[in-house]
Write a protein that binds this DNA or RNA. Sequence first.
DNA 1: GTTCCGATATATCGGACCGATAGGTCGGAT
DNA 2: ATCCGACCTATCGGTCCGATATATCGGAAC
Lengths: 200, 200
Amino acid sequence: MLELAILGLLKEQELHGYELKKRLTAALGPFSSVSFGSLYPALARLEAAEAVKAVEALEAPPIPMTGSMTGEAAAFRARREPKRGGRARKVYGITERGEKLFEELLEADSSSGDDDRAFNLKLAFCRYLPPDARLGLLERRRAHLVERLARAKASIKAGRERMDAYTRSLMEHGTEATERDISWLDTLIATERRQGGTEQ
Amino acid sequence: MLELAILGLLKEQELHGYELKKRLTAALGPFSSVSFGSLYPALARLEAAEAVKAVEALEAPPIPMTGSMTGEAAAFRARREPKRGGRARKVYGITERGEKLFEELLEADSSSGDDDRAFNLKLAFCRYLPPDARLGLLERRRAHLVERLARAKASIKAGRERMDAYTRSLMEHGTEATERDISWLDTLIATERRQGGTEQ
DNA sequence: GTTCCGATATATCGGACCGATAGGTCGGAT
DNA sequence: ATCCGACCTATCGGTCCGATATATCGGAAC
């Protein structure tokens, strides 16, 4: 699932690992931070799959510079790379295979496992999805939460008197949070339908 | 962290793996289910550390049965073990080292990583904690959420116009959820203080 | 009847992710 | 002069997960 986030950011701009991490924790966080221990292996996986490619350590698009480079190039570097110190960067760019993989991951059902994380991630990048797929994502999520809520309520009802006050409070708070998640999704879905216009 | 849950359940009753899983998903879930892929290794770890011990496959306390066993024993087994079919069970019990480990895990600071999961787990078993430790747990959690909220708000403020509507809505919903978590914790803390009585 | 399905049950495997740690380079405080 | 903290890439050990393998039984289908 981290792959999706990496590809999504790389879609917009070529970046190196460290910067990628900063943007990930800034954008998707700061709940559930991303660690280097998962970022670099993920990057390596993507590179092995030829979804990303290490490019020259040259973040800015190649700007034709006429005349003497001496002063201007240095100034440019200073502007683009403030306080550059440390090890050599390894800047990655997305490939065509990467773009395809990105779309596959974004549309994938992903009914298993990670779930909350995965949905948040997808929502952050769902501007790249066609409107109907966007609606589908939201509605699948809603259905999932509704089912979770039902199971939670059944679980509470079943074990009412076996639970102590702490557990009971925890579960009730959990169901309330889920209910609010659902109504939040409802507003998103409503907005989507309003903007979607004709279809459905 | 799974160890804590296992030990907590085993503290109350000797159980085998399958039943342990059912209770875990019923008690702590059904959000964030526990899989066999983590349960059995955790059980093996605990057994290696001599925190739990495999006991005879005899869930019920030994009840002295006088007279003919034939009819009554069969009926008892049928009551205790409904629809018993399948592989032989391996019933685990907690040891003294296990009890100690349980308390250590429950009191451990755990400021790293898992966090949400870990706190929920601890809250579900915090009835075994002395009142002051209980209060400490709640207040540490509160402080953590407050810090998370502050960082989230700062993050939103910093990147306002760079975010699309989906991301913005996601983050705002997240901060609201965190705010509600905090006020929920406040009620728990207030209750705790009221019941705790004299000491701060 | 037997065959096949689903529950009961234990266990392992590969993979994702994490925290900690270890490097390695630079600018700036002390 | 020296240490501290930022920048930057990378690996290690470990936990957890989903999928899967293995095994045993009751009962439904046929």
